[in-house]
Write a protein that binds this DNA or RNA. Structure first.
Lengths: 227, 227, 227, 227
DNA sequence: GATGAATGAGGGTTCATTCAT
DNA sequence: AATGAATGAACCCTCATTCAT
């Protein structure tokens, strides 16, 4: 307790941060796997130290507690994913609403495809938040979470929405559907059920088919029946 | 291990099944609550026996293991929810595709609203499946899960779908979106965030708004702009 | 946490209390020794279960926590010592102040001599109270502790004190000195340094010599120089 | 182990002793506080190095082990307290027995009042001796402890003791009582229970009242009733 | 059938001490 | 001399499961 308070004043995780990159990576990778596959509660620090080839003591020397370890991993994952997302997003920013949203979704899907453990950890941290870390997660990420939608959809031109549709509700529905679609693909990727679809280009292709259905209905970017 | 194999040959759960209805109900209700509120791993058999007022030994005499207890509860929930679903569904079966889907969705939403513990347990069992029971859940329910969509949407008249849309994909997307929408409402109900929406009629009203947006786009049941 | 709260509502320690006397005695004796020799913090539950020949689980099934185990042991010790004290005290209650105090002191000394572990545990619990149990000890025993002196010295005839002496201060000094004297003997008994004095009668004899010195000075029960 | 043996042949603590005075003082002060407030077992080397601003390695380079560190601190405390005691004692050495004893006691009380950490450490080392250092403490200090009484009371004129009293026993009792009284005051100072008594002069005043009661009884320095 | 005492591997965490740098 | 990363045994405690009664 006291130690944790003290550490957080100084610089939490500084012991770990100053490690050689290779060693840090090994430990982080092991933790990613352990938390992603078992969730927070069932993840075992014993399992982590064995897989990482380090001692019990040093793990707690680095992170102080299992909770802090998890929060560090979450921070790490969020940082990478947010960085990647913005880097990819700024490469090309379609002006049309639907194209932009499609672009966002594909970036997210690609990141999840490339880093399934990281993706799973965001799910664990933000959708299935363990009671023990709920408070800290909310403290750190409430801003990020509440901002993510507005940022992505800020300054959107809603004039092209079909008349008779409330743009705000349509957007909500759209985001919700995209998320559900994304989750479906993640499940497929994870379980490799549909062997023919595990190659990313094919996934994207199908994904776009679905997006077009939504686009078609809500949106007058293209007149109905003309596409 | 051996005992479980033996039991499954004989008739698993027969000890429990032959209990007086009232006692069974008490135990099942307690388990519903315990698993729904804590998930599989953190659910405690100790907590269950205390709340149910039974002994440690008898619980394991009835169910053999925590895993079997959970599977029994899942079976129980699925049975009730499927029964209810079909009973409600056959009461009134709109001929129009969208009306029928709306009808289905509302039945599901109503069931979730009326039995939040049961709903949560289906989520735990099928969406957040604990590693320990994954195999058994898949064995039992893969058929049900793969069948549920075709069954519900069997013999659908797809002629009214907008041309240029693959009906199968549109249906999949529709189901996915409805599910996501349903989850959103369940979360709201659970957290009572939006105080004004916890009355079921209001939920339905808003839900229908979203459905209409989807309907509007995909579907020529009503001509665009005419509704 | 929850469990402890629950247990305390039901009947804390009931699991243990209903054990056969012989088994209870074995466990209590082991705990007495462990806590007396190591104090609260360094006492090891591992050591206790090994010496008592029981499992980790059952110890915590009985007592819930190390803290509760310690408090149980303290309660046990206090109960026995208070019972013994009052039983011995009521056998014979000298009317003269000094004789009564001497009588009290000898009873205490005898109890400590007969039950050195119990004596040590009262020291640990009340004089060297470990931080972790301080609150509970004070809750339970503040009444006992604040009453013990007044009870013993209640209704004392202070008329025989030498004039020029404040009776209250003299009594305080007397009690303080007797306690210090008692501690000295306890140390001797514990270390068996003075081999010739470990037999109780000899201890009593010497003890009385000291008491007489105090009596002589403060007290006109016997006129100075007359005894 | 080997290193300790080697070091003790060479000169234990020589690394530390050759440090600049200021640095030594800082470390010693931190240790005094840590051991005084937490006792031997709960004192933390981690806490010490942080408060002293030194590294883990260097602490063990200086002292070899926590045990040796404690023994060094005890040596340091004893040296200072004995020096101070003799310096104060030789300033003024009342010829009358009681006055001399009172003088001694007041010096002790003053030292404890001025250096509460040092006082607490003597208590920890000599009254609550931790098992781990018991042997060493006894080796080093048995001589000091057994000598302290005879030295202090050497060549005392016992002629003034009341007849009928064994002078040696009276002296022992006196010393014991004074110590108990001293402890009582130390507790009061520590807890500031009696707000009005925390100023040293008031403490002394009351302390003398008690001494007079003892003096009155044992001693014919003043005839009974004449004072 | 019914009880609950008993098990023990595993959980997260601490800490004096060592040693490569 | 000086650092602090690293060790690992020991700490208290939990829990699904078993079994004698």
């Amino acid at each position: 307790m006291n130690k944790n308070i003290y550490r957080s004043v100084k610089f939490l995780y500084s012991n770990f941060e100053s490690l050689p990159e290779e060693k840090k990576k090994k430990i982080i990778d092991v933790c990613l796997e352990e938390f992603a596959e078992n969730g927070y509660d069932k993840a075992s620090t014993n399992s982590i130290i064995k897989k990482a080839g380090i001692s019990k003591g040093i793990l707690f020397h680095y992170f102080g507690s299992k909770k802090n370890l998890f929060l560090y991993i979450v921070d790490h994952v969020v940082k990478i994913m947010v960085d990647t997302f913005y880097r990819e997003m700024t490469k090309e920013q379609p002006s049309d609403l639907f194209d932009r949203i499609i672009h966002h979704s594909l970036i997210k899907l690609k990141m999840a495809y490339d880093n399934p453990f990281m993706y799973k950890i965001t799910i664990i941290a933000f959708k299935e938040t363990p009671e023990e870390v709920k408070e800290e997660i909310q403290e750190r990420y409430s801003k990020l979470m509440s901002e993510s939608l507005p940022i992505a959809l800020k300054d959107i031109d809603t004039s092209k929405f079909s008349k008779d549709i409330e743009p705000q509700k349509a957007l909500e529905l759209l985001v919700l559907s995209l998320e559900a679609l994304g989750n479906k693909y993640m499940e497929m990727i994870k379980h490799r059920k549909d062997k023919g679809l595990t190659e990313f280009p094919k996934i994207i292709e199908e994904y776009k088919d679905y997006l077009n259905i939504l686009k078609y209905g809500m949106y007058d970017g293209n007149l109905k029946g003309e596409e």
